[in-house]
Each structure stands twice: as structure tokens, then as C-alpha cells.
Write a protein that binds this DNA or RNA. Structure first.
Lengths: 336, 336
DNA sequence: GTGAAAGCGCTAACAG
DNA sequence: CTGTTAGCGCTTTCAC
């Protein structure tokens, strides 16, 4: 049996309540210095650790927040998770991860079994949850669990911090255009399609405005591998490459790059490539890859503020914050 | 106030106990089909969700396991985390992450403040925890929290699954040797040094046996960036490159690769590069990078078995399992 | 098949 | 400053 507060009480001859107070920094002042020290030294001695569960039950909070996303281990989501985890740790929270899709079977839309604990957290930070699942937020609202959304789109019924991916897309397209690209193919995951991806819209509208023919390649499954294969298929069938490939995210851009290298093509000489997300890796490829830096730190800290306010009991209308990122032009689109 | 079991009891006129039984799959058979259905439909209707904390307090288990590592978001650790998370989810557990070092300040050895919840989990899977912190396992043992270690080394007082990195190192060196490399410099993080890294040992011994001069470059801080800079410094100072760089892990290999590309060198024509870990990314670089695949899936599933056994109350002697990985020879060491 | 009651470990009134 | 008491939501005896 693990050591409890009762053991300390017995050992010191004090009451549970006094022990509890002596151990709790906020209430330690209500206890005489002598007993405080006594309690603390006995606690130390017998290796007492507070039972978070007991504390949580009475306190009504667990000290855990949930990071909810399709695939928390994809590079971009992982780096967001890192910021969330760090933020959480700094405020005394732990972070638990939940996937909304089964990573072993990315193509299936079947949501994986949610961990029971999802319903026991103090708050949820959800990122890029597919629109088909929008109703899921209702569930948490009903349970009184604050939810904050991050990403490109989010249900209107909760606070959210969005990144302007429409703008991102247009900035990227403008950059490609400036580099002389007139025939640009966009590579998009078919799943993204169904979320009405803003990057797709930005691309299509830019094309229209500039007399360019929009053309999409859709991939499914593992982003890198499918993009790589899509490139093999493309240069297997087509005599000539377009001027540029605009990939809806960085993983896709990396797969695309590799698929073109496989075919003996040179980037940027033969074709330009741009991605979107701004993951670190893009910088390390032999041809450093152009991308669009999403303001992760900013997004997370704003989300955290919104979440904290809700956890503190705020009941106001859902707030929506829109952030902008910036282009990182690199070698893969540098046609001098 | 959130809906509780009491609300259902009131609404159905049944007792708390019956409601609890009706809701719990294992005990549902002790309840008449009629009441069971009644309870379940009312629960559904008023949006009841079990409070995990209440359940945990009486049940003595939280349904949470902890994944403990220096930096859970580094690519290799992240992919291990993915396996752990998936395993956990399949068994009804949630995973929480804890870092042992502050990721914002990788050089400092100061352990970051541990989340309180670390002491409220059912079990801990720890990976590559530095030897300086070996005593940390004692703490959990005292608290009766099962710990399983993964990685290259681990304290003897808990179950652990190790990967034979000495063997890994020798296999990599043998491969480089077979490719004609006689002057091989190893790049190692200075932190790894203090753990008596087995890769360093394998390298040194291989060199000795083959009449080669061991030579180390130590990096500190961000693995990629520091390796990249180390290469800049190297070719700034030295007229000529060694035959190969053997990087203690993949992040370092990627930084090394980039640093050499920055200097206008070609891999593998001018120099060979090998890493170790087997992260997916290695395959996508223009020059696909040689690495050593650690048996992540196997390691995680074995660790999970050990952990589950402990969580079930097993009290036997700590077990130690040793696994082997295999070389992934790629273009970066292919000198034909 | 169901209910009453106890208790998991802790904190927060309320007294003194 | 300290002790007594109640109770967080749930499961689990022990009765009936």
C-alpha cells in the first residue's frame, strides 16, 4: 500500500487536515512553522507522494489537458505537440495525446476508440479535426470540458485559433508565379479535399485570376510515400513536367521531391517544389525546400490563453483568432 | 455540474449500486435485463459519462501510462511514442508524455519540473534515461509504480528491453570498412559520452582491431544544427575530409549531411555518411542515408508485455531482454 | 436482482 | 493554529 496522508497524520499525531495544509503550499501559512517542518520532514522520510487522484476528485480538476489530432506524430503536429506540452508543463499540467484517426490505417475514416480519459481532462486542445467530426465538440461542451480549436477551420461553438491558409496558399502561388512558373500542379490529400481545404481554394482562385489552368493530384494514405509514388506515376505517363508542384503540406513536398529525384529530375532546375507548414526538416534536404512557416508558437500560446480562461470558468461567446504565417523561400523554388 | 451516477439513480428510482452494475460490462449480468436497459437508455439520454477520477480512486488504477524520455518529440523517440500510444490505446490506456530534460535548453542537465501526474500513472515506459538519473527508478519502485526501461542501457532494478547498440555500431563500422573507408570519424553528442555510449565503444574497438585511428567530434545542443556547424568548422579547418563520418544517431547524420552539402561536398563521392536509429526520414533525402534500424515495434511490444505483467502484480526479479537491429545500407555509403 | 453502507485519498468548510 | 466532519463519484462488500 502506498503511503498516504493518513500515515503522516498517525506518525506525527496530527490530524489529516493539518497534514494536508502543511503539505499544500497555498495553505502552509495557516500552519505553525514547527508543525509544517515536522510534517514535511516526515513526508520526506517515509517517501510520501500526493495521490493526484484523491486530490483530483475533491478538487474537480485533474491537471491533465488533452492534445487531440488526427496524427500527433506527424512532424508538424508533433512540433505543435511539443509546444503544447511545454506550455502545459510550465503551468503544472500534463499532456495526454489522443488520435482521432487510426494511424495504422490512415485511409479508413473510422475514428479509433477514444481513451476513457479523454473525458476526464481539464481541457482539450484540438488541431485540424476534420469537419465531418465537427459535432464532436458538442459532446465536450455538454460535459463542460473546455475545448480550444487550432488549425485552418473550426466549429463555431468553441474558441479557436486559426491560421490563414488561404493567404498562405496565395503567398506561395505568388512566389511560384514570380519565379516564372505558369503551369503549377497542386498535390493534395484526398482527405483534405473533404475539409474544403483553404489551400486548395487559394490555389484555384490564384490560377483563375492569372489565367492559369488549375490541376490537382490527389493522394491517399501515407503522405510521403503516396506523394513519392504519385511522382513516379506522373513522370511515367507524362513526357514533360509542369513548372512547379505546389504541395499542400511539407510531408507531401518531401515525398514529391524524392519521387522526382528517383526519376532523375533536378530541383529547381527541372521543376520547382513548394510545401506548407514550415517543419524544420525542410531546411536540411540537399535542395532546401521552400515552405510556409505557420506561427506555431503564437498559435499555441494564444490557444493556451483561451483554454486557461475557459478552465477558469469564463462563459463568454466563442472567440476566433486568425493568425498569419510567412513564406520561407528556399532553393527548391529558386530559379535564378 | 456534470451528470453523475446519482442522477441516473434518482431518475430511475434505482440505487447507485445497481446503476453502477448496469453500467459496468463485467457486472451487467448481475442485473435484470429490464433494469439494465432502463439504466443504459437513461444514461444515454442525459449524456452520462463515467467520471474516470471517481473510478480511479476506488479502483486503484488510472488507466494512464507514462512515456518518459529526454525529448519525446525527436523523430526517433516520437516514433517510439507512436507505437507506445497505439499499444496503450488498444489496451484501454491513455499515454501521457514527460520530458526528463528541458527541451528549450538541451545543454543544461537540469531536469525539468515533473508533472505531478507522473506519480499518478499505472505504469511508466522510460527510454534512454541518462545514467546520471538512474536512481530515479528507485523512486517509482518505492511508490509501487511499475517501470520498464527501453534503450541501450538501463538500471538493473527494473525490467528492461535493450537494443544491442554495440553490435549496431560494429555492423555499421564493418559496412563502412567494406566500402573501403579506413579513416572514419565518429560524431557523438557530448551528453551521450557520459552515458558510456555503446556505439562509441563499438566504434573504438572496431578501430583498434582494424588498425584504424579512432577520432571523435563532440557536439552539444540541437543535434542537427550542431552537427551541421561541426561540419562547417571541420572543412573550414581541414584540407581534406576523412573517408567517412559515422554519426551516433540519425539526427546527427542529417545535420552532418547538410553541413557537407553546404561546403560543396558530394556524398558518397567525397565522403560516406552513416547514422543510427532508422528513422523514416533517412530514406527521403536526395542521397538516401544509411542507417541502422532499431527494432522499435518489437521493443515496444516486449516492453508492453513486461509492463502489463507488472501492472498485474507480478513480483519476480527484473528481466532484461536484448534485441538486435539490422543495417539499412543506402546511397550515402554506396561507393561502387 | 437490488439496496444500504463503507471507503478509496484528499481538501474544505466549520468549529474551537 | 488545529481538529472534526463531510463529501468529491464511484465500486464493492454485505445484507436482504
Amino acid at each position: 500500500m502506498r503511503v498516504t496522508i493518513v500515515d503522516i497524520a498517525r506518525k506525527t499525531g496530527l490530524s489529516q487536515a493539518t497534514v494536508s495544509r502543511a503539505l499544500n503550499p497555498e495553505q502552509a501559512s495557516m500552519v505553525s512553522p514547527a508543525t509544517r517542518e515536522l510534517v514535511q520532514s516526515v513526508a520526506q522520510e517515509i517517501g510520501y507522494r500526493p495521490n493526484v487522484i484523491g486530490r483530483a476528485l475533491v478538487g474537480g480538476r485533474t491537471g491533465i489537458i488533452n492534445y487531440l489530432t488526427d496524427d500527433p506524430f506527424a512532424p508538424y503536429y508533433s512540433s505543435v505537440a511539443q509546444h503544447v506540452a511545454h506550455m502545459a508543463a510550465g503551468r503544472g499540467y500534463s499532456m495526454v495525446l489522443d488520435c482521432t484517426y487510426n494511424p495504422q490505417n490512415a485511409d479508413s475514416d473510422e475514428p479509433i476508440r477514444r481513451s476513457e480519459f479523454l473525458y476526464g481532462v481539464d481541457g482539450i486542445i484540438a488541431i485540424d479535426i476534420a469537419v465531418e467530426q465537427n459535432n464532436y465538440a458538442d459532446e465536450f461542451i455538454k460535459l463542460n470540458i473546455p475545448v480550444v480549436g487550432m488549425g485552418q477551420l473550426f466549429p463555431r461553438n468553441v474558441d479557436s485559433v486559426a491560421v490563414d491558409l488561404y493567404d498562405a496558399s496565395r503567398q506561395i502561388m505568388q512566389h511560384l508565379y514570380d519565379q516564372g512558373a505558369r503551369e503549377v500542379i497542386m498535390i493534395l490529400q484526398d482527405k483534405a479535399l473533404r475539409i474544403n481545404d483553404l489551400r486548395g481554394q487559394g490555389y484555384a482562385e490564384f490560377c483563375e485570376e492569372h489565367g492559369m489552368e488549375p490541376d490537382f493530384i490527389y493522394t491517399r494514405g501515407d503522405l510521403r510515400e503516396s506523394a513519392r509514388r504519385a511522382m513516379h506515376a506522373y513522370h511515367g505517363k507524362n513526357r514533360k513536367l509542369p513548372d512547379a508542384f505546389f504541395c499542400f503540406n511539407d510531408d507531401t513536398a518531401i515525398g514529391c521531391y524524392r519521387g522526382l529525384v528517383d526519376g532523375g529530375f533536378r530541383v529547381p532546375t527541372d521543376v520547382l517544389i513548394a510545401g506548407c507548414d514550415g517543419i524544420k526538416e525542410m531546411e536540411y534536404h540537399r535542395t532546401s525546400l521552400t515552405t510556409f512557416a505557420l506561427p506555431i508558437a503564437e498559435m499555441v500560446s494564444q490557444s493556451w490563453n483561451l483554454l486557461e480562461r475557459r478552465m477558469a470558468g469564463y462563459k463568454g461567446e466563442p472567440e476566433k483568432i486568425l493568425l498569419k504565417g510567412h513564406l520561407l523561400a528556399r532553393d527548391s523554388t529558386n530559379r535564378e
